[in-house]
């Protein structure tokens, strides 16, 4: 059994600059989408509950 050659492993292969830029852009878009989703869920929770948050037995 031989160890994988770092130079021929896909993960280690040099990526062309255009592909790297495209991937960075996609990653940023996904990150923004996830942050937006969190904000949306937060807003929905706040506005759906509204004043009802205080309307409960303490």
């Amino acid at each position: 059994m031989t160890e994988p050659d770092a130079e021929t492993t896909p993960l280690a292969s040099p990526e062309n600059p255009a592909a790297a830029r495209a991937r960075r852009g996609r990653n940023l878009a996904i990150a923004l989408g996830l942050v937006g989703f969190v904000v949306l869920v937060y807003l929905v929770t706040v506005f759906r509950m509204g004043g009802n948050v205080l309307d409960r037995p303490l």
């Binding site: 495209a22 852009g25 996609r26 878009a29």
Partner: peptide
């Protein structure tokens, strides 16, 4: 043919 950019999506 080329890597997908976020604009393509």
């Amino acid at each position: 043919s080329s890597p997908a950019r976020w604009q393509d999506f």
